[in-house]
Design a protein around this nucleic acid. Structure first.
Lengths: 184, 184
DNA sequence: ATCAACGTGTACTGATCGGTTAACTCAATC
DNA sequence: GATTGAGTTAACCGATCAGTACACGTTGAT
């Protein structure tokens, strides 16, 4: 299997797991929907867990690239970018296939701290907060570390409520709190 | 089966679903761990979904009772109670068996808006935010509706991050944001 | 003592779970 | 042209999935 086909498999598996959940998506369904036989899948991934980890790596890369790029497109100061994150989130919430955060869902289905899926899900959040902290430092915030973590709370809260309510308005509410945080 | 045994079954099933997840917990395990045979379980609940709905009803009742009571114990003004919510949350995060919010996890595993489990999970959040709004109104907030929803975002964000990071510190960070919100 | 009604547990259903076996295809090498 | 080896497939593995059929023991009424 070429690198292209492998990447294609991961991409298609991502959509399945994102839409249906991890436990609820069997490997037979993955094989059927991707057009790759189970034997071939298991040539490249020793277990379902390894496939999920590859999916999460792709999701992490895609999501961070998209979010950070969008923040830069929407604003040119560090403060502005941190605020613009919530505009980017609102765009995401409006997308047709929006079903919440894949990493929150992954850590909800694999709760054991020793589980690689659990660890990798939280690693994604740490990478996000590190970026926020760097921007907060550039913005000369009093306490960049705390500010970054507070913004993360708002972001995760907004994602969870947007997903559960099937409505994007949480993004604006979170942004208004963030505005207050960044002006104080 | 008496009402006691039925209630006992729901209580034990709650722990199993909370610890292991919904899809990952089979009905055979529920029967084994509760000491009630599958036949008896299915006499009272036509499907696994109905059992889960009963579990969620119990969880909703228990959690709201606990949270609202704890808020009242910790403070006597409406503002104080809204702030004290984050102290109550921190107590929860410190508990041994803390594994995040059952309703967030339920809606993560049952994402279809038409699914009763999904609807009931969001109903829990609406009941919480209604209580927050009543308190915010008593506290003479400028916009009690928006304030209540902002506090909900902070609460959900704190729960998600506390669960993913296996650390309770998110409660304090959320509280500091709430303090700012309630003083402005 | 007999019978009916009910609650329960054992053992089963077909389907699906994650994962594997063995046969097959086909291009590259000698 | 025979051989090899990587990539593919259908068929299968035991275990478990949600859910059910049925036999059994107990109970209360007659």
């Amino acid at each position: 299997m070429s690198q292209n086909k492998r990447a294609d498999l991961i991409r298609k598996a991502l959509l399945l797991f994102y839409r249906n959940g991890f436990h609820a998506t069997g490997m037979d369904l993955v094989a059927r929907e991707t057009g790759v036989s189970k034997t071939s899948i298991y040539k490249h991934f020793r277990t379902k867990e390894e496939l999920i980890l590859a999916v999460l790596r792709l999701r992490d890369e895609n999501f961070r690239n998209w979010l950070f790029r969008r923040m830069e497109e929407l604003a040119d100061t560090p403060q502005g970018q941190l605020l613009a994150m919530f505009d980017a989130l609102e765009e995401w919430f409006h997308e047709d296939g929006f079903k919440g955060c894949m990493f929150i869902k992954a850590s909800a289905e694999y709760q054991n701290p020793n589980d690689a899926i659990n660890a990798q899900s939280y690693a994604h959040k740490r990478m996000l907060v590190d970026h926020f902290e760097a921007l907060a430092t550039q913005a000369r915030a009093d306490d960049p570390h705390v500010l970054a973590r507070q913004l993360l709370l708002l972001k995760e809260g907004a994602i969870v409520i947007a997903a559960m309510s099937h409505s994007p308005e949480a993004a604006r509410e979170a942004k208004s709190v963030a505005t207050l945080l960044l002006s104080s």
